[in-house]
Every structure is written in structure tokens, then in C-alpha cells.
Design a protein around this nucleic acid. Structure first.
Lengths: 204, 204
DNA sequence: TTGTTTAAAATTGTATACAATTATTTAAAA
DNA sequence: TTTTAAATAATTGTATACAATTTTAAACAA
């Protein structure tokens, strides 16, 4: 199953990440390097690197699968809201015409696409806004949260949260009309709704 | 020089970090695992881990010493200001009495301590405020920026930026009197001044 | 010169053996 | 029994050899 055109540690990273995100591991399960290495048909060394990286991203904590509590998720969103709120404000002031068009496309797909496409477009919409800050640290920090954000997004799209796409459209409008306060506020409210919607579902 | 009571990879991490922060390496210099391992008297394996961690913290980029441009530093502060501004607001609402006392102590040392103590107290002051959010991701994110922030702080303290401690005292007052807006604003302004002061000095 | 191709060297990635540490089990004492 | 201590097993940390890759240098053609 090992690909020849990529490094073993990349394979290990992606394999582990997918397994975790798709819930193939018991929550809180202990990961041992040797067993994983055997399953993947590689040695411990690349598995080690992969685990170290996933620890940095918060998917693994202390060699155990991290299954966030609702408090953990609230904490993650507290940071996310701060960074994406700022990014939206920044976009309202500085966004390029191409950026705007990309955002419009995402909203469009949100209305017409398949569930898989909507997932992707949703991700893109937020990604573009952050990228437009052109701040590598900002982009990177949000990037490292993506794995866990992905778990949320799946819930939201899969269970068809009401107004999801409409809210994107509103944010887009605020950005397009350079209304900084509105853009930030709408993004903050949008994310808070995502958060509460997901938490309610996860609790059931 | 290797300590017996700690892991080799911890030693490697701390050694490299210190060397970088104290400017012992050429900016942009390429780090090779084998040479570093030889210098430290350990094998490549722990050196690898250390480098990987420092890459995550932004002190190394692509196996090269990262020497931030002023644009890089502005980007870092853009994120820092966002997170510490929020934390100050949060403190103004929720801080504990112990927290307040710790902050008071930091201000006190800022007035009376040696340069080394002032450095430490300055760090503590900001650290406490972030810690009081009790948000692990927030704390962790700021933590990973510390290495680079340290470079700034050294400049600010060493060159005795005017009003440094007074501004801390004002922030403390705002927090103690639960004035959220003021606490956030003062922190934001405080950090912006740090930034500009450092950038001006570094440019000379 | 400049650019392209090939050979050599340097460096990183991976596997594996062994050492150090940590967790688990077993057995003895209270 | 319950607790403590010792022994054993499991796991992680480190060194090292070798393979794959990347970088550098050299040789040659345009």
C-alpha cells in the first residue's frame, strides 16, 4: 500500500490523520509506534515523525488519540473566531478582485454543488479570507487547526445547518462593500452558529 | 557537556534554541544534522527532533536559520496583538485575585529589579495574562511565538524603552477595575509601541 | 561566456539494533 | 485481602548503517 512517489513519513502522516478524522481509532486510544509501523509496512522512524507532527496539530496528545470535549471545542473556536474575524475585517479593506471572485464562486457552489463539493467550497471560502491577509503566521496558525475544524465542518454540512450558505453570501457582501465592522461581525456570528450547531448535535 | 538527567533531544533543542536566540549562527545559515550532532556529541536522531520542533516554532525554516525581516516581525505582532488583546479583555472580566497579585509583583520588579529580572518580569506579565484565559490553544499558540518574541523583548528592555513599565501598570489598573475595552486597547497600544521601538532600533 | 549533462559528494530519509525508561505483572510481606 | 517490592515485559529514545535524494562540481557543447 506504500506509495513509491512520496516519503514514508508523509504516507504515515496522511494515513494516521485520515484514520483519526474518520473515527477509525478508539477515542483516547494509545498509539504505539511499532504496531502502527507494522500495519503500514514501514519502520518506526517515519511513524515517529508523523506522530510528532500530529501532536503539534492537536490530533494526538501524549501519544493518545485526542477526542475533544465540548470545552476543548469552545476553546478552539475562541481562537478561530479571533483570527478569522480579523481576517474578514482585513479583507473588507484590502481584498483583490480575484479574491472576491473566488469567494463568489464558493457561494455559488454552496448553492448548486454536491455535498462533497459543498464541503470543499465551505473550506475554500474560509481559507481564501485568511489567505488574503498575506500573513504567513496567521495562515499557518489557522492551518494547524484545520484537522479539528474539519470534524466540525463535516457535522455542519452533513446535517445541513440552516442558512449556512446565506451567511457566507452576507459576509461576501459586507466584504465587497468594504464594510469592515459588518464583515467582522458577520463572520464572528457565523462561526458562533457553527459552533453551537455542532455542539448540540455532538451532545445527542 | 551532555547532561545525564535529561534526554538528548531536550539538550539539542535547548542548545540550538539558545545559539539561535543569542545570534551565534549566521543568519540564513544552513543547519546540517551531522555537523550539529558532532558538535553536541550526540547522534543525528535527537538533533532531527530538535530541528523539527524549532521549525514548528518558526526559528528554523527549511533547515536554515530564520532571520525575520521587519515585515515578518509585523506579521508576528499582528497575531500576537490579536491574541494578547483578547486575553487582556478576558482578564478584565474574569481574572482571579492571585492573578492580579502576580501581575502587581511583575510591575513591582519592573521598577526595582536588575535588567535580567526585568526581562523575566516582563515575560511573566504577558504570560500571566494569556494563562488567565485558561484556553490551552491560546496559551500554546502564544507560547510557540515566544522564541521570536524574546528577540524583541531583549531589544526593548536592553535599550530601556520609555514608559515600558508604566504601560504595564496602566494595563494592570484597567484589568483590576474590570474595564474591558480599556484593558484591550492599552495592551494593543503597548504592543504596537514595542513593535515600532524594536523595528526602529533594528533598522539602525 | 552560458547553458546543459553527467559524475561525485553531501545530506537527508529509513531501517534496525540496542539502551533507557515506563508500565505491567508477579510474588512476598503486612 | 491489601500493599509494597522485585521481576518482567512493553515501549520509547538513541546510535548507526545504508538507501534515496539533493546539491555541488566538472566536463562538454552551443
Amino acid at each position: 500500500m506504500k506509495k513509491k512517489d512520496t516519503h514514508a513519513y508523509t504516507y504515515a502522516y496522511e494515513y494516521l490523520r485520515d484514520q483519526i478524522l474518520n473515527g477509525k481509532f478508539e477515542p483516547n486510544m494509545k498509539l504505539t509506534e511499532e504496531k502502527l509501523a507494522e500495519v503500514m509496512g514501514i519502520s518506526r522512524t517515519p511513524v515517529r515523525s508523523a506522530i510528532a507532527k500530529l501532536e503539534q496539530e492537536g490530533l494526538i496528545k501524549n501519544k493518545r488519540i485526542f477526542s475533544p470535549t465540548s470545552t476543548d471545542i469552545r476553546h478552539i473556536f475562541q481562537v478561530r473566531i479571533l483570527l478569522e474575524g480579523f481576517s474578514s475585517r482585513y479583507c473588507a479593506r484590502y481584498i483583490s478582485e480575484e479574491g472576491l471572485n473566488s469567494l463568489r464562486e464558493c457561494v455559488e457552489i454552496g448553492h448548486t454543488g454536491t455535498q462533497e463539493e459543498v464541503m470543499q467550497a465551505n473550506h475554500q471560502f474560509h481559507q481564501i479570507i485568511v489567505k488574503e491577509t498575506h500573513n504567513p503566521l496567521m495562515i499557518d496558525t489557522i492551518d494547524k487547526m484545520q484537522s479539528i475544524i474539519y470534524l466540525m465542518r463535516k457535522t455542519v454540512v452533513y446535517h445541513k445547518r440552516p442558512n449556512l450558505i446565506d451567511e457566507h453570501a452576507e459576509i461576501l457582501n459586507a466584504i465587497a462593500s468594504h464594510d469592515e465592522d459588518l464583515a467582522e461581525n458577520l463572520m464572528v456570528e457565523h462561526l458562533k452558529k457553527d459552533l453551537e450547531f455542532s455542539l448540540n448535535l455532538l451532545k445527542v
